[in-house]
Amino acid sequence: MVVEEGWWMGSLFEELEAREAAARVRVEELEAAIAELSGKLALARDGLERLRVTRETVAEVLAEITPEAATAVVAGTSPEGESVASAYAGAERQVVGVLTVPNWQPGMTSDVLPSLYRDILEVVADAPGPIRAKQIVPRIGLPAETGKIEGTRSKLKRPVERGWLDEEAPGLFTPARRRAAASPNSP
């Protein structure tokens, strides 16, 4: 009987050693995967930082452009009125950030904005008073879903930051006051 118990204990230790070896291999595999993902994360962070710096640089450059030049850039003409061929023609929806909603300057009209922002400004201008994103969404042809309302609320912040709209109280949007008296045809 003693011989059988010793045999059993020997195979138990062999099984534990085999499991430990398998666990060690799995740990090494996971560590290698983590090292690979860490490298990919570092590359992605570098790309993100380059994009952030580029966006800030473009914002600075656009802030220095005169209203006429900014309007011409959006319209695809030179400041002298000559047509300019663009490698980005037809890609207006892919333009991000500052290029989509430029800072409002005297003489600028909503024609420089993408159609969605023009629609939003029109709805805000037509409202009898301050208006909320959930009231704007159905009027611009979107379903009154939480995601669409939140997306529109986010979009409303850009024209506020850039002088096209005012936010009287959190979530209540009106046409920018300083422009209302200056030009009745402005959005």
Rank of each mutant, 00 (worst) to 15 (best):
A87T: 13
Q94D: 05
V84Q: 08
T54W: 13
A44S: 12
T66F: 05
P67V: 04
P67H: 02
T100A: 15
V95L: 13
R50I: 10
R93D: 00
G90C: 02
S83A: 14
E64H: 02
L99S: 04
L99H: 04
T71P: 02
A75M: 09
R93I: 00
A87G: 14
S78Q: 09
S78Y: 07
L62M: 14
R55S: 15
A89Q: 13
V95D: 01
V61Q: 03
A75V: 08
V73M: 09
Q94I: 05
V58L: 15
V95Y: 03
R55A: 15
E49M: 01
A75G: 04
A70M: 15
A72G: 06
G47C: 07
E68P: 00
A44I: 08
G97S: 12
S86I: 05
A59S: 15
P67N: 03
G76H: 10
A85V: 11
R50E: 15
A87C: 07
R50W: 11
E64C: 02
S83E: 12
V61H: 01
G76S: 12
G81L: 10
T66G: 13
V73K: 00
A87K: 06
P79T: 08
A87V: 08
V73S: 04
R93W: 00
T57W: 03
E56G: 11
G97Q: 02
T100Y: 00
S86V: 05
G47Q: 09
R93L: 02
Y88M: 07
E56I: 03
R50L: 14
V58I: 15
T100E: 10
T54A: 15
D46L: 15
T100F: 01
E56Y: 01
V96L: 14
I65W: 01
V98C: 03
E82A: 13
V53W: 06
S86K: 08
E64D: 11
R50T: 10
V53M: 11
S78N: 07
V74N: 05
P79S: 10
A69L: 06
A44R: 10
T77F: 09
R45L: 14
T54G: 10
V53Y: 05
Y88A: 04
L51G: 03
V73R: 06
P67T: 05
